[in-house]
Simulated scan of single mutants.
Amino acid sequence: MWPEKGKRSTRIRRRSTVSCYFQHDCYFQPEIIFEILTRLPPESLVKFMCVCKDWNSIIRSQKFIRAQHDRSMKANSRTILVLNSNAPTRSEASLVYFDTLIPHTVRVKQPLNKLAGMTSVAGYSNGLVCIMRAGEHLVVWNPSIRRFKQIPFEQPAGAGKRYYGFGYDSTDDDYKLVRVVVFGFDGVSSEVKIYSLKSNSWKKIQGLPRIEDFGMLSLRLSSWNGVLHWLMCHKLDEQTHRLVTLDLATERYDELPIPHYNDGPQLTLGVLGEEYLYVSLHYRPEAESILNSRNDVWIMKEYGVATSWTKLYTFALEDMPQTPEYKRLAFKSYRHCKPLLFSETGEKVLLHVDSDTLYWYDCETKETKRVHINGEPSCYSTAIWKGNFLLSDGDPV
């Protein structure tokens, strides 16, 4: 027998007032809900904002964003962002997760897809990626929640070559972009400006320290622990280098020692897995076979201590199996081998070779394994990615 209409409608009305914290024995205190939500990936948080007003309010709060950000910074990320940097009319990007045996790839839209020109990575830190196109269009982008913020363009004082670096200043709790413009053929004069994500403004600081007869070598300033790093090379002696730093908090320049080397290698600088500063030494004896080319990678285990530079591995073509990939690299004579991150056991390193190939390299056995990802571009940039909820108030991609 059907209940009376009045009673039925009352029952439905009562159910509609149930709180999203649940009731009776299923009730959770807001503090517990807060803690649970901070442990979830950003992609899930975007969906959970639609569950109810209470959860939406929690996730949007600065307290929650800060807690989730701090948790993500402590996590060891094994995810990279792959950004197509080959075709000017295409703007593909993917997040590649290496937490499983087979890499899992998720396609994401990037915010500069409607502009002409090549897209490149200016820098990255803690899940935020700064990308640019045509040297003037820059954005700070959070791929995990598909949000970004446009960086206002600041006209340089004159024509010159531009260098960029992006990092996190924990003292001011601010993400900052540094632009270095070097003027003239001698490269003696320069202009350095810092963009603050918090204030959305630029400010000029002291120019690069004048190191006689030295010029910029690094194309990008590498960020580690709130400090930007780059290499400078002697203009008359290409085998003499200096490692210069800029502290984002104090805005002071300094120098660090570099590992000792012989035989005139080509040097590149970077950060391995957001854990170690590294210097890669590429040796290619011109009078010998291409197969003698190799990359020695050194990591600084104790920051600022010269004696802490330790050789992590040597990657050489002659150690690779005789596969079509081996023949292709030998034909090209690879020039750059960028270490990205460690495997879960720490025994292997993921390498990005010549901007178009990924390998797992075992530092002990010297074995290599080609990594194939879905929709792999013919040429691409990479960045270490960590999921967070920063820029939740930004523009949608």
Rank of each mutant, 00 (worst) to 15 (best):
W2R: 14
K5A: 12
K7A: 13
R13E: 12
T17G: 11
V18R: 15
C20L: 10
Q23M: 14
Q23V: 14
Q23C: 13
Q29D: 13
E31Q: 15
I33Q: 08
I33L: 12
F34N: 07
I36Q: 08
I36G: 06
I36V: 14
R39I: 05
L40H: 00
K47Y: 06
M49F: 04
C50I: 09
W55H: 04
N56T: 08
S57T: 13
I59W: 02
K63D: 11
I65Q: 05
I65H: 02
I65Y: 04
A67P: 06
S72A: 10
K74D: 03
A75F: 09
R78E: 03
I80D: 01
S85E: 03
N86A: 12
E92V: 11
S94M: 04
L95S: 00
T105W: 01
K114I: 09
T119M: 13
S120M: 12
G127Y: 03
I131P: 01
R147M: 06
P152E: 02
P152W: 02
P152D: 02
F153I: 09
A159W: 11
K161V: 14
Y164C: 04
D172G: 07
D173W: 02
V180K: 02
D186Q: 12
D186C: 11
S189A: 11
S196H: 08
S199P: 05
S199Y: 11
S201M: 11
W202C: 09
K204P: 01
I205D: 02
I205P: 00
R210T: 10
L217S: 09
L217F: 10
S218L: 06
S223K: 01
L231V: 03
L236E: 09
R242T: 04
D247V: 09
L248M: 05
H260W: 14
V271L: 05
E274L: 10
Y276H: 03
L277D: 00
L277A: 03
V279W: 00
R284T: 08
R284C: 11
A287E: 12
I290Q: 07
R294F: 09
D296G: 06
I299L: 07
E302I: 14
Y303A: 05
Y303R: 08
L317F: 08
E318P: 03
D319R: 03
A330N: 11
K332T: 14
S333V: 10
R335N: 09
C337T: 10
P339L: 01
P339D: 03
E347Q: 14
L351A: 01
H352D: 01
L358Y: 01
D362G: 07
D362I: 06
T365I: 04
K366C: 05
K369A: 09
V371G: 05
H372K: 15
G375L: 08
P377V: 04
C379W: 15
C379A: 14
I384D: 00
I384K: 03
L391V: 07
